[in-house]
Amino acid sequence: MSELSLGELDSLVLKAYRGAGFSWGMAQEAGRAAAWLAAHGLPAATLFTNLLKQIDGTDATSLTPDIQNQGWQPGTHTCCPVVCGTALSDLGLSHLEAGNSIAVGSVYSPAILLPFVAGCATADGVNVTIRVDKQPLLTGADGSYDAKKRHAGLVSEKGQVELEISAEKAASEALNVRRAVISAPEAALLEQLAHRTYVPASELSRSSGAGAGLNDND
């Protein structure tokens, strides 16, 4: 196991997600979500490694939820949590009231939804419980959020997700974890995907890509 700064994790996941074939704007969301998860003491590298193993090479459209006129239609396919999360964030939850719920459907690595749902909840002033296969994800019986409780389903590879708007305010936790933990195989997989965003050197790029110009040793 080794440690990364949150900035390094953000950048690695951004490149890996881009390398897996998603747009730059979505990759920015993925990197930022990873840093949020790590800052909350959650196993961000494991979650994204699991996710990317499952979705690498899959066309983005088949990982996108079916949404018509702001209504979620859980389909038969399993979606990417970054795609679902950004869609939730974009559509917002402000039109929902306590007791309402959204059936998001089947999602890979559903814990990755957390930063998106948390961001949405703050922006729209609502409290949300995420249920994965009917179990609340990282929330206690009173609806409070507790990152320290390692729920068995946290790193599950996929699950049926439902969001429920609750009346009670969730306890918020300070962002104070400074380091992201990553195992060697996780780092290897993410770096392998990130590598697809790099351009190999050529004679031309060596001589002009960074602009050799004048002698620099004087």
Binding site: Y198, V199, G209
Partner: peptide, 26 residues
Amino acid sequence: WYASEEKLEPRLGERFEEPGAEREHP
């Protein structure tokens, strides 16, 4: 604009003369 495999640093390439434009940065 791209990141070089050698140094992972930003670089500027010639789109019509060098391979790699499909890996362009935003």
